[in-house]
Amino acid sequence: MHELSICQAIIAQVQAIAEEKRATAVSDIHLRIGPLSGVEALLLRNAFPFAAAGTVAAGAALHVSDMPVRIRCSQCGGEMTVPANRLLAGPMQWGGSVNV
């Protein structure tokens, strides 16, 4: 539900950059979104055309790539990809302390 306000924030950034670079149109916007950001890519795509309408980014294609959650054990330095709600679960013996 908050994806429209996020789209408006994206458009504001894009507008500022376009102005700075004196661009007259924006053709593509690429985003990387991680699952811990609380932003849903699908909803973002649906909301984007409404936020972009009438701006320099109107008609721009929005490309969203989902990023995995990576954790690093602060003891052994081992890294792995985990589900967003099981940051400490996995086959490795995490000492209970990880960097996300």
């Binding site: 996020i6 924030a9 994206i10 950034q13 950059i17 670079k21 661009a23 985003l31 979104i33």
Partner: peptide, 15 residues
């Protein structure tokens, strides 16, 4: 003449 610009900022920069 189009150019690609990498931004590397959070989506919620203004907030």
């Amino acid at each position: 003449g189009s150019a690609s610009i990498e931004v590397l900022r959070g989506l919620l920069d203004a907030n």
